[in-house]
Design a protein around this nucleic acid. Structure first.
Length: 206
DNA sequence: ACAATGATAGTT
DNA sequence: ACTATCATTGTA
């Protein structure tokens, strides 16, 4: 394995986002996650990488936040330490993936809404009339593509979990990131707590 | 416009 | 126990 250290996709050679980076208000972490890479190592499967192009933030004093009415079995990981996941089932059909923010005891997180995939998961590559850019466009679809469900709830974002985050490889001008209202909620719907990479084809509306 | 589909939280 | 709700998506 002489050339091992030159293999670009070897996980250990890439910089990773640490829990301390997530120990900030979700309203700050959400825009900073735009352009970062979500990496999924499927068990006995391929490595899938996707650029985060759409996020939403949910804060403790936010009526739309699952943590707003206190801790429960479902949202417990939102009150856990930063840099871990919060995964929940929605409409009995889809899962949604969050990055927990702020210290343990504080219920806040960032919802990952859309990914621009670098690699198409083999099982999804041959689906007809599915545009590649749309495979992970939407919180439910990206969890389906990356095989993320409640078993990953509370997991640390790290290679040992098969799920981790990497920083931006290139700077993104702030003007390329649009801030606007969140999608699919009724409470606090007027708050501009959604961010997306302007013009990216995986974004719900951009 | 609406059905699919199940866990959750609040109410009897 | 019952019921409304839900940070969604695909089809009509």
């Amino acid at each position: 394995m002489v050339y091992d250290k030159f293999v670009p996709n070897k996980p250990d050679l890439r910089e990773r986002i640490e829990p301390s980076w997530c120990d900030r208000p979700s309203i700050q972490v959400a825009p900073d996650l735009i352009g970062c890479t979500l990496v999924r190592q499927l068990p006995n499967g391929p490595l899938i990488r996707g650029k985060i192009v759409e996020t939403e933030s949910y804060a403790p004093d936010d009526p739309a936040c699952h943590a707003y009415r206190g801790q429960s079995r479902r949202n417990a990981s939102m009150f856990g330490p930063p840099g871990h996941s919060y995964v929940y089932l929605i409409y009995g059909l889809y899962h949604c993936l969050n990055v927990v923010t702020e210290p343990a005891g504080t219920g806040s997180a960032v919802l990952i809404r859309s990914l621009d995939l670098e690699t198409i998961p083999p099982g999804l590559a041959d689906l007809p009339h599915q545009k590649p850019h749309r495979i992970a466009a939407g919180p439910g679809k990206l969890c389906r593509a990356l095989e993320i469900d409640r078993r990953l709830d509370g997991a640390l974002y790290a290679p040992k979990s098969g799920l981790w985050l990497e920083p931006r490889r290139e700077p993104i001008p702030p003007t390329m990131i649009t801030q606007t209202t969140r999608i699919g909620i009724t409470k606090a719907a007027e708050q501009p707590w959604r961010w997306y990479l302007q013009g990216n084809l995986a974004v719900s509306k951009g």
